[in-house]
Design a protein around this nucleic acid. Structure first.
Length: 580
RNA sequence: GGUCCAGUGGUGUAGUGGUUAACAUGCCUCCCUGUCACGGAGGAGAUCGCGAGUUCGAUCCUCGUCUGGACCGCCA
């Protein structure tokens, strides 16, 4: 369909040109024998003007009608500095109504009045809003920068199957019944992990894919059922090589998308350091407020609340906040609630006022402990101390949650800062008391540190691994690892994770087999593309950067999926629905 | 699986144990030549999510249910 320009294009230099535009009616302002219409397309808005000779032609035109207009570019009598095209308008000579539109359930504009529920139900209208279009444009730019960088660095994009084999380790699988093989199921991939490793066995050396992944778990504002990751795998690269390569790519993304030069290399924190200082394995380092360790201060304390922290794998951690006087009983209760919600048994709070420690716990401290606490925390007048005593990990993570909460509520950081970092040296496995077995911290293909191998039998939870996470502003953007490339070691890993010989054979037999035929040392990582897009567009929710997202209840608000299916379909799939 | 919050014209909100449920915006009609969230006048539009209970009387209180949201569990 014919148009000479798009709606975000024309400027004062174009005055006098005869142009044809097409677009949606964003707004109509009728002044009697003069009608203004804001004509919108994905590039922007241009004001078009109808004088008394044409007002009748647009008399019935309403919002979201599509018009094709031909006219002359004029300099406006009164300009609008808030619009890119605000210096000009089009005096229309011909108008054609290309399509009409029913009244939309909400206003198609950046500032809309509808709730997200309504917006998602009419997502195709929601996506007409310029803000949302910009977010998807930004997302596309991110992907383009990644493609360019990886292509320039010798990576080849390979597609891996969506219908794959179920490996019920980790998240719940989405299952797809097989019509041809009654009673058997495909699984949708939680990630292309094994396929990409097999591509390394095959000798591709540098693979990537914009891969769709599926996990049948409950959703969150930053979690969807199906999501997209940039999946990367390389051979013959060290951990350092991979981190440096990834940094280069993210630097290009930041430059191309945001025009920001970020500092390389990223800071690197060992897992234990990140936990000790920030109480998180994905710390937000845009602000300080670091955790302190006060275990030794209370080493001989009889205070019952500190018992767990003083036991073998326990710690007592503290967080010091300024302006204690600002905190009412209610504020402190809400911090305590937050701590408990995150698994703490309680939160000890102490105010330092008039050079005295104040708080209900203080009576359990002796003079030496009081002095030592003030000295260790370097307490200043009017500070508030939050203390959690628990296992080391729990004490850290609870205070880490409080730290994030306070960082946000006290406005301790600048929203336009992008602070990238790596967390490295993750433990290989962690022990689950309920299940009485070890679980991989990353995944079962992760390579343990060579110098820790002797601990693999005696104390597996002390073994470190070549796993790494890239973190931005408190969000885990992605992670990866060097992989095991020795089939005996891989076998041993599965055994450590309490898989039986039969389970190993049926689930991973083909994979272990593959490792026998000259597997190169390899490793890679995966970046959550949706999350990257969410952060770079400043969005609150993942749903803003996904064209057609599911809601919190795992439904598509537009199509209502998932829905029941025909008896006939079920029969073909050999499936009977049983409700209890 | 759990905790908490919300459901009132198309949309977003206010509100009250008692006559006609309020406001904004959108919509419709009319007026208007410099608007840009145009302005002005008038108008239509709601069984207050659903069911049960308490009550003389429920949109309001109670219970249940459905829908949506945030979080915990879960997410190798």
């Amino acid at each position: 369909m014919e148009r000479t320009h798009v709606n975000g294009q024309l400027r004062i230099a174009d005055v006098g040109k005869k142009v044809t535009l097409i677009g949606w009616v964003a707004k109509r302002r009728n002044l009697g024998s003069l009608v203004f219409i804001d004509l919108r397309d994905r590039t922007g808005i241009t004001q078009i003007l109808f004088d008394e000779t044409l007002t009748e032609a647009v008399r019935n035109v309403r919002n979201e009608y599509i018009l094709q207009v031909t006219g002359t570019v004029l300099e406006r009598q009164s300009k609008n500095p808030n619009m890119d095209t605000g210096d000009i308008e089009i005096k229309v000579q011909e108008v054609k109504i290309i399509n009409s539109a029913s009244q939309t359930p909400f206003i198609i504009a950046d500032e809309t009045d509808a709730l997200e529920e309504t917006r998602l139900k009419y997502r195709y209208l929601d996506l007409r809003r310029p803000v949302l279009q910009q977010k998807l444009f930004t997302r596309a730019k991110i992907v383009k920068a990644m493609h360019e960088y990886l292509d320039a660095n010798g990576f080849i994009e390979v597609e891996t199957p969506i219908l794959a084999k179920s490996t019920p380790e980790g998240a719940r699988d989405y299952l797809v019944p097989s019509r041809i093989h009654p009673g058997s199921f495909y699984a949708l991939p939680q990630s292309p992990q094994q396929f990409k490793q097999l591509l390394m066995v095959a000798g591709f050396e540098r693979y990537y894919q914009i891969a769709r992944c599926f996990r049948d778990e409950d959703l969150r504002a930053d979690r969807q059922l199906d999501f997209t990751q940039l999946d990367i795998e390389t051979s013959f690269m060290s951990q350092d090589d991979i981190l440096t390569m990834t940094e280069g790519m993210l630097a290009k993304v930041m430059k191309d998308v945001k025009g920001i030069d970020i500092k390389l290399p990223f800071r690197r924190f060992k897992y234990t350091e990140a936990m000790n200082r920030f109480g998180s394995d994905k710390p937000d380092t845009r602000f300080g407020l670091e955790l302190k360790d006060v275990t030794e201060v209370f080493r001989n304390s009889e205070f019952r609340a500190f018992e767990t922290g003083l036991s073998e794998r326990g710690s007592i951690k503290a967080l010091v906040v300024d302006n204690a006087a600002d905190y009412s009983r209610k504020d402190i209760d809400s911090l305590t609630d937050l701590a408990k919600k995150n698994g703490a048994k309680g939160l000890v709070t102490i105010k330092y006022l008039n050079e005295q420690l104040e708080g209900s716990a203080v009576k359990f401290f002796n003079e030496i402990e009081k002095e030592d606490l003030i000295k260790t925390l370097d307490l200043k007048e009017n500070q508030l101390v939050l203390i959690v005593s628990d296992s080391w990990e729990k004490a850290c993570s609870v205070l880490g949650t409080l730290r994030s909460h306070l960082g946000r509520s006290l406005g301790l950081y600048d929203k336009n800062t992008y602070d990238f970092l790596w967390v490295v040296e993750f433990p290989l496995v962690e022990y689950s008391k309920e299940d009485e077995r070890y679980y991989s911290v990353h995944h079962p293909f992760t390579r343990p540190y060579d110098e820790d191998l002797h601990l693999l039998d005696s104390d597996p939870s002390k073994v470190r691994s070549y796993a790494y996470d890239v973190v931005l502003n408190g969000y885990e953007l992605g992670g990866g690892s060097l992989r095991i490339y020795d089939c005996d070691m891989q076998q041993k890993m599965f055994e450590l994770l309490s898989l039986t010989k039969e389970e190993i054979e049926t689930r991973f037999g083909f994979f272990i087999d593959a490792l026998k035929y000259g597997t190169p040392p390899h490793g890679g990582l995966a970046l959550g593309l949706d999350r990257v897009a969410m952060i770079l567009t400043g969005s609150e929710s993942l749903r803003d950067v996904i064209a057609f997202p599911k809601n919190a209840n795992a439904k598509c608000p537009m199509s209502d999926a998932p829905t029941p299916v025909d008896e006939k379909q079920l029969k073909e799939l050999h499936i009977k629905i049983v409700t209890d």
